[in-house]
Amino acid sequence: MSLRWPEIVPPRAALAFAAGVVALAVAPWVLGLSPYSHNLVTLAFLMVSGALAWNWMGGFVGQVSFGHAAMFGLGGFVAARVLLAAPELPAPLAWIAGGLVAGLFALGAHPTLRLRGPYFSIATIGVGEAARLVFTYWEDFTGGSSGLSLPIDSDMKYRLYWWGLGLMALVAAASFLIRRSTLGLQLLAIKADVDAAADVGVSATFYQDLVFCLSGAVVGVSGGLWASYFSFIEPNDMFGFDRSIGFVLMTVIGGVGTVFGPVLGAIVFVLLRQFLLASYPQLYLGLYGLLLIFIILFEPLGLTGLLLRLSRPLRRWADRPAAAPSP
């Protein structure tokens, strides 16, 4: 095997990506972020990672999951348990353990994954809600409705910014590679027409399993980081239906099936949520519902689609012939 630049990664995109990550990495020092902003951005990193991973299933394979909270919660509680049992262990190992268990759980849900379309979506609601109930009452593991507390470590919370950034960068790069690779092609083929895909050799079951496992693992890791961030987690929140909805909303708002969309959507979601929860807590879900309706009806690619639409006339304007007659 020879080392050479992979054809599917345009060097300019790689450079821009690296520059973006570096900029975000130094931002806390350069901009002197307030603790409030610092923490908000950390949360956004975690949400972006989750949305990107949800999009592998919902956007690339075309299977809408309403149950990703199961993997998020599982990852969070496994990580928390590991940290409580072995406080001297480096936290990243605990997060990875959370991700592994979440990924295995997703694989264990394998039979539901052979379902397609609305059947799959409804089954994920069932799996998600069953998981919430079971884990809420499994007090030995999750602490029940009183939850679990981790030793508070404010330094850890501060450093989570970079861990979150790292996770997000990794998942974003993976999204890009999947989208551009032959794996991504096969996923899109499955999304377009499962039977036709099978007729040219693509095993939908295999790839759905693979992607759901990976997606679940990533969401599990972000659940682990979440646990470290808040130092307190509670099953009804971690496994809650609202959380599953969150992944759906972020991705759909940003632009389902694109790489950029979930990033944008998650950022908007976190900011909007912060603002709505502060100012109009009673309108919070309904506004997302309206947004969802508008996006599905008018702009299926969400904010990404909107940006593309806006940028087209802009680019045309920028590329206008120099000798264009002035009015």
């Binding site: 809408v64 979506s121 909805i245 759906v248 309108l283 309904g286 309206l290 969802l292 309706i293 599905i296």
Partner: peptide
């Protein structure tokens, strides 16, 4: 998926 998401949005609105 579009109809699922659309009607899900309606549900969120009704709840709210």
């Amino acid at each position: 998926p579009a109809s699922l998401l659309l009607l899900f949005g309606v549900w969120l609105v009704l709840r709210n």
